[in-house]
Amino acid sequence: MSKLKFHWAFLLIAAFIPAISPHFAELLRPIFVMAILALGLNILTGFTGILNLGVAAFMAVGAYSYAILTCDIYPFQLNFGCATGTTVLIGLLAGLALGLPTIRLRGDYLAIVTLGFGEIVQDTLKNLDVITKGTQGINPLPPPPFSVYYLFLAFLTLVVLLNRNLQRSRIGRTWIAIREDELAASCMGINPMKMKLLAFSLGAAQCALAGALWASYLGSSGEPGNYDFQVSIIALCIVIVGGMGNIAGVLLGALVVMGFNSIVLETLTNFLKSHQIISSSNVFTAPGNWKYLLFGLALILMMRFRPEGLLPSKQTKAELHHHEPPKN
């Protein structure tokens, strides 16, 4: 019970942030979107143990669907609620469409297929510039109906609650059983393909939701290049750094990784610029140019020393530390 109160306390604090520091609230908005994206990935990688390297593609599907459904150059012009709902549905179907033929593949092969899908979506969006307006992106989109901050907070809360209930339901336990041992799970009467497919489409739907929110926040679909492999990797970083399979961990991961990206690096760059330490001719001095090095090192070091993440679920922690598998 005390744990539950703890979560509500967090939500309450989050609700008052715009009143306390409007600037910080502004910085938090993209973090909320990335958290939703990472939670979508968490269903796959955290719960079910499927590595998806193409979540950015589902985000792109979401953003472009939302843009096409709301922009006034297209005939649909739905309101925010209808458009978001339809986008989530489209995301679900996109996940199903990719998952249906590929879900049988082994883990790392499936990862590569999702990666390939990410590239296919990006290039297709670039090439179909009649519909997607190429690198311009589809804009302008109508602004969201009310405060972006509270809207995103509400969606994030909704997604967290949904994932929490999923995790504790029969479905979630089935996913975890598949992650732990697919063969044993199928012997217990679980249909792994069906459950994996469900994880795949639900994860994709959440990523599409993140895309729709992102597009509404930008007021544009963004350009195809915004949804590249690096976005997928940042989502993966969030899940791994935070703690695979633990919702609170993923939220913490989003705060740490995105906060580092958009707050620490930005502040550092501005600080260095104002003191004239950065010169434009020297690439080494700009902190932004070290970003991927740091992300990469974070992934390597986490895998080496703390594969369960900063805030792991009890299960993962126990699995990784209590019985070391025998050296074969």
Partner: peptide
Amino acid sequence: HLRHSIRLAPLVSAIGVSFVFLNVGLLWGG
């Protein structure tokens, strides 16, 4: 060190290495 870790660990680690290399390439180009 990851040969006996969870199956995805080496792949994720390799993605990390790839990012480090990418960044080194960027700096090297400078």
